[in-house]
Design a protein around this nucleic acid. Structure first.
Lengths: 140, 140
DNA sequence: GTGTGGAATGTTATGTCATAACATTTGAGA
DNA sequence: TCTCAAATGTTATGACATAACATTCCACAC
């Protein structure tokens, strides 16, 4: 249940391009969507994007949304200066507007850790994703 | 946060074939793996499998593992006779042996529901998946 | 400054997961 | 026996992801 963190060094050109695109986006982007948006910046092949994404996820700057096969820039309370140090987080994904809210419920994490401990299961990552409608889209 | 349940009627031939394969399997199967294993039973195209899976998931007999893009037969405490009535469940997925343990932590669900309520988010499904090593594979 | 090795990059090809579109068959109930 | 909704069969295509290999970049030892 660790999500071990590496320090995040300076980003390379491709990593910076991909991270920039994700930071500007208002909703998750697929690797291929990112690629399309970076053609003018010289990116040509999916692997260039996937490799950058791998590193960004490793650095904790980007999250992969498993139920969407897409990626979002990390949006923490932003306390930690640069090498964001965080554990398990959860996501609420609106299926109407595509918006994603990242949140951390420490009690949820503790409960899951408790289950894992009693079962002898050693988790190295945890996926928590709610699918539904955000407040705005519910009332609309 | 409901995972609304339909009653599960008798299964059609394709549904029964797919469900049977998943029930016998000891680990999650991808749709294409299921297809390969059912060629001799007359299945030929991915859609035949995906359509059966859609219904089985709808009936609550099968779960989709989002972080694996694969499917497992539901393995509940098995209380309810046939039309299994269950809410949100969680999965622990062993990356060594491929085994999946399905469990329900009511406190986890309540906490997530609590978050959703205060945020006005209306969840219709929830994904909780732990990735790591099961007890057997840790000691081995 | 030059050499060297690890990391990142570029490129082609391919593998894996999933659905669109349309024709046909099946079966419960009017 | 008609009819309509559901399920099925089939072909084609779209969407997500990685294998394999050649090349470039750059910090650091010499």
């Amino acid at each position: 249940m660790t999500d071990a963190l590496e320090p995040s060094p300076d980003l390379t050109r491709n990593q910076a391009l991909v991270f920039g695109r994700l930071t500007e986006a208002e909703a998750p982007l697929s690797a291929y969507t990112i690629l399309d948006q970076l053609r003018n910046d010289g990116l040509r092949a999916p692997l260039q994007v996937y490799r950058a994404l791998d590193k960004l996820v490793e650095y904790g700057l980007v999250h992969r949304l498993e139920s969407l096969n897409a990626f979002v820039a990390c949006n923490h309370p932003a306390g930690e200066n640069s090498g964001a140090s965080h554990g398990t987080v959860a996501f609420a994904i609106c299926e109407e507007c595509g918006g994603v809210t990242e949140f951390a419920e420490q009690d949820v994490v503790k409960r899951l850790q408790g289950w894992a401990r009693t079962e002898g299961f050693h988790a190295h990552s945890t996926v928590i994703e709610l699918r539904g409608l955000c407040e705005n889209c519910t009332t609309a």
